[in-house]
Every structure is written in C-alpha cells, then in structure tokens.
C-alpha cells in the first residue's frame, strides 16, 4: 500500500512537471541597439525555434503597397503559407518580381488600381524588386513561427507582437512556453545579432541586441 502510494505520488509529480513545462509562460521583450545605422526602427527580431503552435492564417491580410516608386512597408514579416497582396497605388505601372531561392515569381507589368497576390510557402528572405524602377526594393521575410516582432522607433520589441499579429488577422497566439530560446535579428544593412534567452515560468525576459553594420545573413541556417 505504502509502495503504491509512493508510485502514485511520483507519477503525479511527473505529470505536474510535464504539464508545467508546456505552460504558456511569457514574452521576450527588449531593445535593439544597432551600430552604424541612423534609426533602430524596422529591424526584425525573431525566435529561431519554438514549440509548434496552431495558427490560423486563412484570414490574414498582408499588404505590400506600391506608391511613389516605393514599396510600403520596406520589410514585411509573414508566416509560411501567407498570401500577400500587391496593390499598385502609383501613377505608373509596376512589375513586382523576385528571383530569391525561397520564392521566384514575376507578376508582370500592371497598372494603377490593380492588385495581384502571391503565396509564400517557403521560409527565407524574399528580395522584392520592380523590373522597371531601379530604386524599388523591399523584403518579405517568411518565418516559421509567429514569435517575431519589428522594432519601433526606439528599437523596442515584444515577442509575440500581439498587436501586429491581430492587425494582420492572427488571433490567439499564446505566449512562449518557459524554456531556452535563440533570438536573432535581421536587417538588410546589419549583421545578424543573436542572444540565448530563457523565458521564465511567469513573466517576461528582457534582452538587448547590438547588431553591427554589415552583411545580412540568412533567417535559418
């Protein structure tokens, strides 16, 4: 009797342990302090690997606009499988295309008022161009999980970025589970900065990333 109750206690403890390890625990917050860049804004910060979460992207609305010979936004992080719309709101025709390994496409020339769409099904950096206008360049960053954020004017970020996710139509992304994570940055003019962080069972972990000016790396090695 005594032996069986001990076994029961051990099993219960083990169950609690397993359950607690799967508890959605907290966020990663922090600041990016780039060296050699005027503004710390628009830097992608992302968690390389996280526990799989179920995210419904069927209602997402990703937009890469074209105005005054400019792609807006300049960087657009999306989840694998995302459909991105490319409206032409300029006065002249544009021809959006990419020769990137993660997604090759060519939308051809289309006029003001028209919209074309592309589905991004592989993770990676998509170098976006217009075939006619040399200065038009932007990046679509296709990510494996929703644990990413883009820095604000002060370089601050919180992962997951619930406000941006909800804006794009993604709801109910849970906080990260407690555990160790590798956090990286991506910006077209910065070397990758990375830090290992540990998300506690309750609360938030903060991190400071200091990428240096240089060649951008790949999202996933």
């Amino acid at each position: 009797m005594k032996r069986s109750s001990t076994i029961l206690l051990v099993l219960t403890l083990a169950l609690i342990l397993v359950a607690s390890s799967r508890t959605w625990a907290g966020n990663i917050a922090g600041v990016v302090q780039p060296q050699g860049l005027r503004s710390p804004e628009n830097i992608l910060v992302y968690v390389v690997k996280a526990a799989p979460v179920s995210v419904d992207i069927s209602q997402t609305k990703y937009l890469m606009d074209q105005q005054q010979l400019t792609f807006i936004p300049h960087i657009l992080p999306v989840l694998v499988g995302a459909k991105v719309e490319f409206p032409n709101n300029d006065k002249v025709a544009h021809n959006v295309f990419s020769l990137s390994q993660a997604k090759k496409f060519n939308l051809g020339s289309y006029k003001s008022g028209e919209i074309k769409t592309v589905v991004f099904d592989q993770p990676g950096v998509i170098d976006l161009r217009c075939d006619v206008h040399q200065e038009m360049n932007a990046y679509i960053l296709v990510l494996k999980n929703p644990y990413f954020a883009v820095t604000d004017k002060e370089g601050r970020f919180t992962i997951p970025d619930q406000r941006s996710l909800e804006k794009q139509g993604i709801k109910g992304v849970p906080p990260l589970t407690a555990g160790k994570y590798l956090v990286k940055t991506w910006h077209e003019k910065l070397r990758t900065a990375k830090e290992k962080v540990e998300v506690p069972v309750n609360g938030e972990v903060t991190v400071i990333l200091k990428p240096k000016r240089g060649a951008p790396g790949v999202l996933y090695k």
């Binding site: 005054q68 010979l69 400019t70 002249v92 006619v132 206008h133 200065e135």
Partner: peptide
C-alpha cells in the same frame, strides 16, 4: 522602359 523610367 528601364533607362528612361521614373526615378524618385
């Protein structure tokens, strides 16, 4: 189309 295109 490219060498006589609009620029910013």
């Amino acid at each position: 189309q490219c060498h006589m295109s609009w620029q910013k």
